Simulated scan of single mutants.
Amino acid sequence: MDLKAELDDRPVFVTGADGFVGSHLVDTLVEYGANVHTFVRATSSGELNNIRHQRENITVHRGDLRDKHSVDDALSTFQQYDDTLIFHLGAQAHVGESWDRPYETIDTNVSGTLNLLQSVVDLDLDITKFDTAGTSEEYGNVKEEMAEKHEFEEDGRVMLSERSPVNPTSIYATSKLAADFLTMNYNDAYGLPTVTTRMFNNYGPRQNPRYITGTIITQALERDIVELGNLQPKRDMCYVSDGVRGHLHVALGGNPGEQYVYGYGENTSMREWTETILEVGSEYGYWDNPEIVQDDDRYRPGDSDVEELLVGHEKLTEKTGWEPQVTWRQGIRQTIDWYANNKRSWYGRVDWR
C-alpha cells in the first residue's frame, strides 16, 4: 500500500493525539503530507506534550470527548470535506487506573465514543472511514464453556482473531468493548463507514512509564532492582510504529463494518519480557543487570488478570499486506534509548518511587 499517495493532503482527525500511539500516528500522518487535525483534552495550561514538535504542522482542537459541544465544534471543520479519515484513539487506557477511576473510564471511553459517533451523524459528515481503537484486553481469559469456539495452537496456546469470543475482565476492557459495539451500531443504523481495530500490547518511545515496558526500563535506569507484579501472564508485544501502520492499513484498506486485529504474532511471559529488556539494556551499557523483584501490591485485583494474549493477524495481512516489521530486540533498544534520553518526560509520572 502506497501510504504517501493515499494520505497526501487527506483531511484526518485524530482523538487522543497527544497520547502515546496517537502522537506517533500524528508524526506519520505529517510525514506523509496529510492535513492533520488533532483533538486534545483541554487543560488550564494548554500544554502539549508528545506533539509539541508538530505544532506548526497540525491544527489543534481542544475539548473533551465527554463534552458533546466541544466535539461538535471540532468536527464541524470537516463539513467542507468528503474524504476525511477519523482515528479515535482517545481513551482512559490504563487497566489498573480503570479500577481507581471507574466512572471516568466509562464516561470517557463509552460516552466519549458515543459523542464522537453521534456528532458525525448530527453534522452529516461525509467521511471515508472511522477507526475506533480497541484492545486485546477485550478477549480476557478463555471460559471453559466457550473453549470449543476458540482456536488453539499445537502447543495449547489460544490464538485470538476476529472470530474469537470476548470476555473482558477489567473496567477498562469492558469500556473498550462497549465502544467497539457502539462503533458497529452506527455502521448498522446509519451506514457510517466504521471499523474497529484491536491492537495487541503496544510499546515504544513516549509511552506512559506506568505500563509494563516503561516500568521495567525506568526502574532499571534509576536503581538496582525492578519491582513488578505478576510475571506469569503472556502478552503479544507490538512496537508502536507497527501499531500505527496497522491503523493506517485498516483505515485505508479495511472493509466498513468489520473488525481487524493485529500484533506481533508471538507472545512472551512478562518474566521473559523483563529478562529480555534487562539483557538488551545491559548489552548496550544502559545498566548492569538489575534484580527482578515481585511485589504482591502490584498485582491486578482478584482474578482480573488476563493469562495469555496471542494474535492471529491473517485477516489484516491478507486484506492489506500489513505485517510487523520491528523485532522485539530492535523495538526494545529504541524504547530504552528514548527513556534514557528523555528523563524529564517521565520522571514525575512513575509509580515506583
Rank of each mutant, 00 (worst) to 15 (best):
G63Y: 02
W346G: 12
A340R: 06
Y262T: 04
Y103T: 12
Y284W: 11
E258W: 00
E318C: 03
G265H: 03
Q207R: 09
F152Q: 11
G204T: 04
T213H: 10
D337H: 13
A74M: 02
N141F: 08
R223M: 00
R206K: 15
D2V: 06
Y139H: 09
H150R: 14
Y139G: 08
P290G: 07
V250S: 09
Y264V: 05
Y339C: 11
P233N: 03
K149I: 00
G229R: 02
V311Q: 04
H247F: 14
I277S: 07
D288H: 15
T59V: 11
G229S: 12
H150L: 02
P209S: 04
F181C: 09
Q207Y: 02
A74D: 10
D82M: 00
V14F: 05
D236N: 11
G191R: 03
G204I: 05
K143D: 15
S111C: 01
Y172N: 05
W322D: 08
V261M: 14
G140S: 02
T276K: 14
D2H: 02
N49K: 13
V244P: 01
D180Y: 14
Q259Y: 05
V261N: 13
D122S: 07
N201G: 07
S136F: 13
S170W: 06
R210A: 02
L75W: 12
H88A: 08
P233E: 12
C238K: 01
N185Q: 15
P11L: 00
V30F: 06
V21F: 10
N35K: 15
F20N: 02
E153N: 14
N141K: 04
G254H: 08
M146A: 13
R210M: 06
R101F: 12
Y190F: 15
T218M: 08
P233M: 05
Y81G: 07
T218G: 07
K143R: 15
V110G: 08
F181G: 03
L252D: 06
Y299G: 00
V95S: 07
P256W: 00
S241A: 09
S136H: 05
G63L: 01
T59W: 03
D351K: 02
D9R: 11
T335I: 08
D82P: 02
Y260S: 06
M159C: 03
I217S: 10
T327M: 10
R235W: 12
Y299R: 07
Q325T: 15
L117P: 02
L316N: 08
G19T: 01
T43Q: 01
Y286P: 00
R198N: 12
T135W: 05
E148S: 15
V250A: 11
